[in-house]
Nucleic acid binder design. Structure first.
Lengths: 226, 226
DNA sequence: TGGGGTGTTAACAATTTGGTAATGATGAAT
DNA sequence: ATTCATCATTACCAAATTGTTAACACCCCA
């Protein structure tokens, strides 16, 4: 039992789905909490601090995307894995989901067996980064030990905040980080800085790197991609 | 059996973990001492002078970081390898740990097999520079035995603190050492010195060496590069 | 007792940085 | 096409950080 003790919150408005999924996850040693609408999901997330949150997109009260956006803007859920349940060919939700701070999505309908293996893989993915400290993506290498970034092996000198910001965004390439998330993580939740501060730092990073690896998602935040 | 006779101290408050890990390490020829809380860890460390100390972060009496801090402030544990057992994505402990002189981290949960191979690698890492005590980088040679540094074979006389500081930075070229790390390692965690002390020593080293091999990373620390 | 080397501190200079305001784009919604 | 919110860009300034110098206390040894 590799992932013993991990807590999972599932939010969906269909009781049948909740039951069959939670039963199967429990069989595999996970602790499961369920919620039947968006408001309940937020409440239970705060109460239980789960390691993984699975959100159906279509839910009463608040839909999955709203829930995700709300949770992600709070510091306590920065590290939580959040994934969406979406209808099979709902491309729009897929895109939207990732752009609101989700880590991944799962297409419905899905068999319990596949669900369990997907969940396992989420936790495995998190277990990875322990040996190799450096992130290497395309021509960009980020080495936290050296506080240094390399582009095509050319060292690039970033200031502390710039480095921390880039390193944070690059920790999950493709995933969009909300402005609030970034503020919480890089500046800390007590510090208050103006709206444009993030932009300016992003600008400086873009300028120094010379390449466009940080994408703006308007109204939401930024993401790192090659 | 390469590492016969090496002594390992493991401190953890869960008897099961202690037992399974120590059993497996003993199988591989290590001598294992166990401790079930922070105070006991310190006591047994002094009694047995182990070569490697594995500290769980969360322990009764004193936590792993406190233990590390105390041990590192005593000269007899300068050379001892100290590693932490941490929860998976416990960034904070990692940072704290490094500041107080930890050599590495092991993430929980961990299988006995991986634990043994990690332990082996610690000793391999340490066994290496026992033969060649001197560090040689570019035109700079650092000889701890003589407390002496050579630049292009010209001897350069550094004072004790200066030498220790340079030697510490040069132990991992390229890696940034936080000011706190440096203070804890060179001055010891109980000594309190002013803000400018490090700078002055750095300056003296730069002056005496005549070349620019120490880079400032503002807001972070210093690193040694050729 | 006095001199050289060492470690530390204080005071000030120099530098870098982080943040903001002002203004100019941009793009989605109407 | 226009509006409005949002983001990009630039230049500027204050604060944080580090560099530098000189002075001081200390210790060891002659």
């Amino acid at each position: 039992m590799v992932s013993a003790g991990k807590k999972i919150l599932i939010a969906d408005d269909e009781p049948d789905i909740l039951e069959i999924i939670s039963y199967n996850l429990q069989l595999h040693g996970y602790e499961v909490i369920t919620a039947k609408d968006g408001d309940q999901a937020i409440l239970k997330a705060k109460q239980n601090q789960p390691d993984l949150i699975i959100l159906d997109i279509m839910m009463p009260k608040k839909n999955g995307i709203e829930v995700c956006k709300i949770l992600r803007s709070q510091a306590e859920f920065n590290e939580t894995i959040i994934v969406f349940l979406t209808a099979l060919n709902d491309e729009l939700s897929h895109v939207k989901g990732l752009e609101y701070g989700a880590d991944d999505f799962i297409s419905k309908p899905i068999s319990p067996k596949i669900m369990v293996s997907k969940v396992n893989s989420f936790f495995r993915r998190i277990n990875k980064p322990e040996t190799t400290n450096a992130i290497e993506l395309g021509d960009i290498k980020i080495v936290p030990d050296e506080y240094m970034v390399y582009y095509k092996d050319q060292p690039i000198n970033l200031a502390k905040k710039e480095f921390e910001l880039l390193n944070y965004l690059a920790s999950k390439p493709g995933r969009v980080f909300l402005r609030n998330e970034i503020l919480n993580r890089i500046w800390g939740s007590e510090v208050i800085v103006g709206d444009r501060t993030i932009d300016v730092h992003i600008r400086k990073i873009r300028q120094k790197l010379g390449i466009d690896c940080i994408t703006t998602v308007k109204g939401v935040g930024y993401k790192f991609e090659i």
